[in-house]
Design a protein around this nucleic acid. Sequence first.
DNA 1: TTGAAAGCGTTACCAA
DNA 2: TTGGTAACGCTTTCAA
Lengths: 342, 342
Amino acid sequence: MNLKELSQILGISQTTVSRALNGYPEVSEKTRALVNAAATQYNYQPNTKARGLATGKSKMIGYVLPKASQNEMPNPVFGDFIAGAAQTYGKQGYDTTITLTENDKQAETYRNLHAKRSVDGVIMQAPKENDERISILKKLGLPFVVHGRSTGSNDYHFVDVNNTHAFARATNFLLDLGHRRVALINGDENLDFAIRRRHGYLQALEDRGLEIDTGIMFSSEMTEEFGYRTMTKLLTMQSRPTAAVLSSYIMAIGARRALGENGLRIGKDFSIVIHDDALSYLPNGSTHPVFTATRSSVGEAGRLCAEILLDIIQNPEQKPRQIILEAELVVGSSTGPAPKHD
Amino acid sequence: MNLKELSQILGISQTTVSRALNGYPEVSEKTRALVNAAATQYNYQPNTKARGLATGKSKMIGYVLPKASQNEMPNPVFGDFIAGAAQTYGKQGYDTTITLTENDKQAETYRNLHAKRSVDGVIMQAPKENDERISILKKLGLPFVVHGRSTGSNDYHFVDVNNTHAFARATNFLLDLGHRRVALINGDENLDFAIRRRHGYLQALEDRGLEIDTGIMFSSEMTEEFGYRTMTKLLTMQSRPTAAVLSSYIMAIGARRALGENGLRIGKDFSIVIHDDALSYLPNGSTHPVFTATRSSVGEAGRLCAEILLDIIQNPEQKPRQIILEAELVVGSSTGPAPKHD
DNA sequence: TTGAAAGCGTTACCAA
DNA sequence: TTGGTAACGCTTTCAA
């Protein structure tokens, strides 16, 4: 069923039918009622492409995912993120499209997306320092919102978590318990968020005048395996740490395994604090000893990104909206005082 | 840059330019070269909507996700699934669109997607028994491939894992070790895959004439929490099982925690076999003791679904292609013989 | 308040 | 081998 057919059935011009359906005020209530009834009856829905062509808008939001991060992106974090956003889009009649691309072809992908006019705006994720994608999007004039921040430029819209603060607090939490050697098990420090987390960790140590030991600071792709290997390594050190701050729940699972294998009990022999952006697989009211976690809701971030993006699509030329969310501190049962050690 | 502008620059008609770009044979090599050069130079990309309108194809594949399954879908499994597929789409110039919808409005969403002509085909996931979505998609004439199967009808394209076999084998594996009371910790048995897994488990027990005890068979949403609670419950039973088959890795993490808290060692005091569709966060060559796992690659399934879908979009009226993948059996180090018990 | 017609950027048909 | 033109299905301008 298309407009032409519908208007013929009704014996009214396409113009009027279109106007009635789109809520133009100049349509008489009588015809509007007629038209709406018929539209419902025949389940008429305007052809997306035709409408888009006529209006110059595609009503589509793009997400570009680099293939290289297949282990990183299509994980619970990304799922939560896009789920939070999709809801907002849906309400305003926008759809979501995902494009997978080579890691080094992201810029090109954005360019093409724009050239083909297939999206009205995009969300950019996982920025690096001085991320080139930002300048390209700016040059293209394609509306975009960044999830995260890219140190280096400042005039773009973003939603980020206060990673620095979250990690400073997490580290302080352990220092307050009396720990003096606290390890850092961080995500890939090519990414901006991991750099900030590191800063927070270092800041907390420096504030107390504690010595920095890069030998107990680790950074890599956030996998269970990396958590396991790193914790195993930590435990064999001669002057071994008594606590650690971890950059994701999945790494913590690996770390926990390593502790278990070495007969160490969490909170007794070794304390950890985990930061995770999602923790979505842990339902509320969980009996899980989350140890001590700082958690940020990536779903919330996704929703905020979506709202800002739709707003700037509809009225551009706003000055950058920049939102920094505070991570929530969840104190569980398993982080005890510093064990006596060495 | 659009066709008109490009053709004016070249001093050639739009028709010819379009033909050159689309590889029509009747274009002279000279003009084709000219056109291609100019297209590259100006980064001309045909407007998706205009092309779609003219050709009647949208070059879009739809994924409809029910909100209710926010804990279920936007998880590693879904991520892997869509990542595998997106690659195939990309190669053939298709894009992917995701629509989030209320759980009970999925049928409506498919209908609208079709009415708006915004997709050429869809992938359907997580079928129930006699899933109504299948009959609706058939009625609409919208090409679709199901990831999984829906007992009840048979004339549709699908890619599924042999869940029955995987679980029969997993159970037999434990029975072969001497276990006689093997528990089942399954996913939500409203879903077809979980029903099949249950069948496989029961089959293995029946084949040996063992008694079925529904008191040690559990089914719910697959979360760590459920794994923890269930295992805890199992361990307090007076005639407690000595082994269990688990329906996902995330539940196994919870189960492992329960075992640890009760001082039981996996493979010594209690054996488990895990089935998981993804295990993507466990890199290859992992030192992780996957215990014993049967694993199926959901990425592979995603790719196959994508290939079939593109094929039936291009030439419909094929008889149903139905692929059943065998899960891989990964034997780790931690599943020991049946512990002496009671 | 309604309608005719132009226009959005392609592809595809028919002539040349 | 090339070009003019209709058609895709909608919105929007202009007239009535």
